[in-house]
Simulated scan of single mutants.
Amino acid sequence: MKKNKLFGKVFGLAVFCFAIIANTGVEAQTSAKDKQEIQAKAGNWVASLNLNDKAKEASVTNIIAAHLEAVRNWNNTHSYTTVPAGINPETGNKLSNLDRQIIVNSAMPDSVHQHLMNGLAKYLSPTQVEAILDKYTVGKVAFTFKGYEAIVPDLTDKEKQVILANLKTAREQAVDYKSMKQISAIFEIYKTKNEQYLNSNGRNWHQLYKDYVNKIKAEKAAKKSK
């Protein structure tokens, strides 16, 4: 009797979980077409490294493709609706659908990330690993860092080191998210950390950013007046 009750509870939970996945409207399995597209993307990224080693290229391509597919499937089978529409306890703001999807995706097993990073480290140099992570995040580290240098032209070496380290942490975390909106949201977390660091280091980020915007506006106005 107890065994039947236990089976009923487990079966009920399985049905509930299946309903959640079904409600996403996306099948858990990757179609043959999507697999080809993922494999092609991974292959193009690896080709840009010019490894000149077919076996190594194939291994790295398969590692990246497996990770891209795992991220895609997790995102597509774990809807934001599984997270209650509550508030962010730090800000009090209502969680957006994007916030809720990021929370869901952050629960993806750590093994998915570790398989990627360990695999890349096995076959690639640290510089090559960074190049692949940049492919995932469309070069956001370099682009964002240039922005800091433009806004705060007298950054010290220490400040540059801290800012760059935060951006690289953002990049590695962001590879586990599917869309550019999600990736950008992860970078926003670390951009906020950078701004808080600058403020705590005697800077006034708000004023620096305001001065930069005014400078750009003045330069545009000067060009139009010519």
Rank of each mutant, 00 (worst) to 15 (best):
L208W: 02
W74V: 07
V175I: 13
N199T: 12
N4P: 02
T192F: 13
K94W: 05
Q29G: 04
A121H: 08
N44S: 14
G92M: 03
S106P: 05
L13Y: 09
L6S: 01
V104I: 05
K178C: 01
S96P: 08
D211K: 15
A14K: 07
I183R: 11
A185E: 09
P153N: 09
H113E: 06
Q39G: 04
N76Y: 15
G25M: 10
Q207K: 13
P126S: 00
W74G: 05
L208S: 10
S200K: 12
F187Q: 03
H67P: 08
R203H: 15
T144D: 09
Y209D: 11
I63T: 10
A222H: 06
L164P: 07
S225Y: 14
A66W: 02
F7Q: 12
K210N: 02
L98F: 05
A170D: 14
A170C: 14
A170T: 06
V71A: 02
E195Y: 05
A40E: 08
L208V: 06
A131S: 10
N201F: 06
L68C: 02
K168S: 00
I163T: 03
E37A: 15
S48Y: 08
K158P: 03
L116C: 04
Q173C: 04
K158L: 08
G12F: 12
Q36D: 14
Q114G: 05
T127W: 09
I20N: 08
Y177R: 05
Y80F: 13
T137E: 02
Y177C: 04
K210P: 01
F187I: 00
F145P: 02
A131H: 11
Q101F: 05
A121D: 11
K158A: 04
Y209P: 01
G25N: 08
D34A: 06
A121L: 03
S179C: 06
H78V: 13
K160T: 05
D211G: 10
K181Q: 15
L133Q: 03
V15Q: 11
A70N: 06
T61S: 04
H113M: 10
H113L: 09
G25R: 10
A40L: 11
K54L: 10
S59Q: 12
F187E: 04
Y136D: 00
A40Y: 06
V213A: 03
V138T: 13
A174T: 01
L155F: 08
Y123A: 00
K168I: 00
P89M: 06
Y212G: 01
T77D: 01
E27R: 08
A170S: 14
H113Y: 14
M117Q: 08
D110N: 07
I189W: 12
M180Q: 13
N201S: 14
